[in-house]
């Protein structure tokens, strides 16, 4: 990959692209590992009649139905696979994350306290940004949107940039350690 980045020529590009193509396919198989794992665990619970085993039957039924239609009928528009996704899976997934709105508001009420100078800075910034980013904020104080924008574009960007640079340096050095064979824990070795 690194040589292909610096080098030129069709052979090098072709070789690099074949590697990427292979990688995409292998990554696909890796995703199936999770499917096999959840099937194994759920089947085990049903076999041993452990707690909530009837729900695991529901899980397995849904899994095989969805996978069956996907494999034998297809996954495009107009299939049962698409219908199950649009009408059952999608609304549930969207709802599960929306529940967090209730929890985050409750947490703001109970835990967001100006106990120290740092906590106070955090709290004030949060309030300014929350009000500055909604239309009603300008009616509370007309400069809220401008102040919120300034916070986002300067102090916040500075910190995000510091974190991006720090994390990227860490990731690049880890990649180098892997390439040079220093880091081998992913192989199960120290």
């Amino acid at each position: 990959m690194i040589i292909a980045f610096f080098g030129t020529g069709d052979t090098l590009a072709d070789f690099s692209n074949e590697a990427l193509r292979y990688m995409s396919i292998v990554a696909g198989f890796a995703l199936l590992l999770g499917v096999i794992s959840i099937t194994q665990v759920s089947a085990g619970v049903v076999r041993k009649r452990e707690k909530d085993w009837p729900y695991k039957i529901v899980l397995l039924l849904c899994l095989f139905t969805m996978a069956g239609f996907g494999i034998f009928q297809g996954i495009t528009s107009g299939t049962v696979f698409e219908w199950l996704f649009e009408n059952i899976q999608k609304p549930m997934m969207a709802t599960m994350f929306s529940v967090l709105a209730f929890f985050i508001a409750s947490a703001a009420y109970r835990a967001f306290r100006a106990r120290t100078v740092e906590a106070t800075i955090l709290l004030i910034t949060a309030i300014v940004v929350m009000l500055g980013r909604v239309p009603m904020g300008q009616y509370v104080y007309e400069d809220f949107p401008a102040v919120a924008n300034w916070i986002m574009m300067f102090p916040s960007v500075a910190v995000q940039r510091g974190i991006i640079i720090g994390a990227a340096l860490g990731a690049a050095s880890m990649s180098l350690r892997i390439i040079l064979g220093i880091e081998r824990t992913y192989m199960g070795r120290g």
Binding site: A101, Y109, F112, R113, V134, P135, M136, G137
Partner: peptide
Amino acid sequence: GMDSQSMIHLLIVVFIIMGNVGYF
């Protein structure tokens, strides 16, 4: 959706202020 967003942001700010008033 922005009207609801405005209302709820205002409500959360009130929550934070009430929580802190109670705390202090």
